[in-house]
Simulated assay, not measured.
Amino acid sequence: MKKFITLLVILWHCSAMSQPFSFEKEGNNLLEPDAGSFSPSGAIPSFEKEKISDILPPELAFVFSVNRENPALLVARWEIAEGYYLYRNQFKFALKGGVLGKPQFPQGVIKEDIKYGQVEVYEHLLEIKLPVQDIQGALTLETSYQGCADKRICYPPIQKTVNLPATPVQLEASAFLGEDDLEDHEFLKLDEAFEFSADFPSPSYLVVRWKMADGYYLYRDKLGFSLSEGELGTPALPPSILEKDPLFGDVHIYKQPLLEITIPIKT
């Protein structure tokens, strides 16, 4: 009797600082900011109170969101109200469930600030790209930032936490085992016959691997790859061998102990 196995693998992975910032080391807890928590340093003279009575709460002055542009790249986004700005040098990021690369900041503008003098700031719309590596499932992004209402008041540091669910990469493959009768052979479990792993060495590509047990192999033309968020390029398939298969006839297969395939990610 011929033996045929179909393998379905679900890889949970999701862009990133080479030396990730830890809020715990800084003694901060990441909490949602209180709408009434901001105030200028020192007491507010009575004649100044009217100037700050129309100040927006921080969550409206700086509307924050995070998008996953592709599995290895996060984009942090701030919609900044008119007359408000964020400091370039007050951003901090930390990631749980992966490793952050160096944040990619756009060019800001130089402003004369009531607190720091001449500083680089961001107004209107800000997007910071965050590369992510070594993803281990769901991600938790922690960020801290600070800004001001122009020439009126500065907020204390604002802290946010965003949970990002794992992104599945679905990989399908087929395997065929020898010529022994099914009754005379005990099959290995799929994760033992084909030990699967994947890495994201770069936001531009991923690498998938199978360690195959002796006597098992994969059909080359049965390998298929798809990405639930994003688009994959053409996989770089290694050379295969041609064998006579009892089920499909002459087919190209992989039966080496380790199969490694690089797949580009389109951006």
Rank of each mutant, 00 (worst) to 15 (best):
Thr6Gly: 09
His13Val: 05
Met17Glu: 12
Phe21Gly: 05
Ser22Asn: 11
Leu31Lys: 11
Gly36Trp: 08
Ser37Leu: 07
Ile44Val: 15
Phe47Asp: 14
Lys49Val: 09
Ile52Cys: 04
Ile52Arg: 01
Asp54Glu: 09
Glu59Ala: 04
Leu60Ala: 11
Val66Lys: 04
Ala72Gln: 13
Leu73Thr: 04
Leu73Tyr: 01
Leu74Lys: 04
Leu74Arg: 01
Glu79Lys: 12
Ile80Met: 08
Gly83Trp: 05
Phe93Cys: 10
Gly98Asp: 02
Leu100Lys: 02
Ile114Asn: 06
Lys115Tyr: 12
Tyr116Glu: 15
Gln118Cys: 01
Glu120Val: 11
His124Leu: 07
Pro131Lys: 12
Gln133Leu: 10
Ile153Glu: 04
Pro157Asn: 08
Leu164Ala: 08
Pro168Val: 01
Pro168Asn: 04
Gln170Trp: 01
Ala173Phe: 12
Ser174Thr: 11
Asp181Asn: 10
Asp181Trp: 05
His185Trp: 04
Glu186Ser: 13
Asp191Glu: 15
Asp191Leu: 11
Glu192Ala: 13
Ala193Asp: 10
Ser197Ile: 04
Leu206Ala: 10
Leu206Lys: 08
Lys211Thr: 07
Asp214Cys: 06
Asp214Phe: 15
Asp214Ile: 14
Gly230Ala: 11
Pro235Arg: 07
Leu237Cys: 03
Ser240Ala: 15
Ile241Ser: 04
Lys244Ile: 15
Pro246Ile: 03
Val251Leu: 01
Lys255Val: 00
Ile261Trp: 04
Thr262Trp: 02
Ile263Val: 14
Pro264Thr: 09
